[in-house]
């Protein structure tokens, strides 16, 4: 029987799928619910130093092949999020996602997440719709390096960096994470996108642009993971358009040690992890992959 257990560096997960940041992670109980439904871990929503309302509605719409959102990093701020983190991390593995503008903010937030019980921290270097944050700082290798270094020296839990596909220097950014001592990269965040209403002759989202996620971006994500695997030694977590076990298998074969699921919760429901786990196990048994590790990067050989 194949084992779904996987290791992302020092962090071991019983199941390779995690709930991606921004999905069902407003409260401790909602993160626990996803773990109970088969996720190996849950990534918290991205938390900043201060409470943030995010962008005004509309900040979401379904489109052909997925959805576009510009939530704008709404969150209650790190102090108020403590209770949710403590509740959730008492019941399962929680990766604390944080965002900031400067290295010292990331370091401060990551330290708090470690105190609150996070088993790893995910640095949001990739949100495409928040001014001064996310991909605006995550597309400069020098800035990425300084942020990862600062966080590494302030926490003892693994430090992951979530990367944006909205760049032509993804490999350089991945190397910057690795050179700074980062423990893993997570790829990809959403693709910068826009929806226009022909009838109203204006962009639908209040922020005008947002990020595309869902089925449509899977080939982009798989390619990104494949490219990163070609240049990096640190583990990779694949994310982008995973709806079923075949999608997860693609990411693993491209080089991912684990994966995250987000948009699929919309159409597949919260039971999506259970279905993926079951399908993946069956596939691994049939094709003779005893472990996720034995399958990771198989497409490179």
């Amino acid at each position: 029987m194949a084992s779904l257990r996987t290791e992302i560096g020092a962090l071991a997960l019983e199941k390779p799928g995690m709930v991606a940041s921004g999905i069902m992670d407003e409260t401790g109980p909602s993160m626990i619910r996803m773990i109970k439904e088969g996720a190996g871990a849950a990534v918290s929503k991205s938390i900043g130093c201060e409470p943030n309302e995010g962008h005004k509605n509309p900040c979401f719409s379904e489109v052909c092949g997925g959805l576009v959102n510009a939530m704008g990093l709404p969150n209650p701020g790190i102090e108020l999020f403590e209770e949710e983190m403590r509740t959730a991390s008492a019941h399962g593995k929680i990766i604390g996602s944080v965002y900031g503008a400067k290295p010292d903010e990331f370091a401060f937030l990551a330290g708090k997440m470690e105190d609150f019980g996070a088993c790893a921290v995910e640095l949001n270097l990739s949100c495409p719709h928040a001014k001064g944050y996310g991909m605006e700082i995550g597309t400069d290798p020098a800035i990425v390096k300084s942020i990862v270094s600062a966080v590494k020296s302030s926490v003892s839990i693994p430090v992951w960096a979530k990367l944006t596909p909205n760049t032509h220097i993804l490999a350089d950014i991945g190397r910057a994470v690795q050179d700074a001592g980062g423990d893993a990269v997570v790829a990809i965040n959403t693709l910068k996108a826009m929806i226009i209403s022909p009838e109203f002759a204006r962009p639908v989202l209040s922020n005008k642009f947002g990020g595309l996620s869902g089925k449509a971006i899977k080939p982009v994500g798989v390619r990104a993971v494949y490219d990163l695997k070609s240049v990096l030694d640190i583990p990779i977590v694949g994310v982008g358009g995973i709806y079923g076990w075949r999608d997860a298998a693609e990411y693993i074969m491209a080089g991912a040690s684990a994966f995250q699921v987000g948009s699929a919760v919309l159409s597949e429901g919260t039971g999506v992890f259970g279905k993926i786990n079951e399908g993946l196990e069956r596939f691994m048994d049939e094709y003779g992959y005893g472990s996720v590790k034995s399958m990771a990067g198989a497409a490179h050989e």
């Binding site: 921004g22 407003e26 979401f60 709404p74 987000g262």
Partner: peptide, 13 residues
């Protein structure tokens, strides 16, 4: 916000 069950913003517990 989303209305569609993904963002989690309207959760009660």
């Amino acid at each position: 916000k989303c209305g569609a069950g993904v963002c989690g913003c309207c959760v009660m517990d």
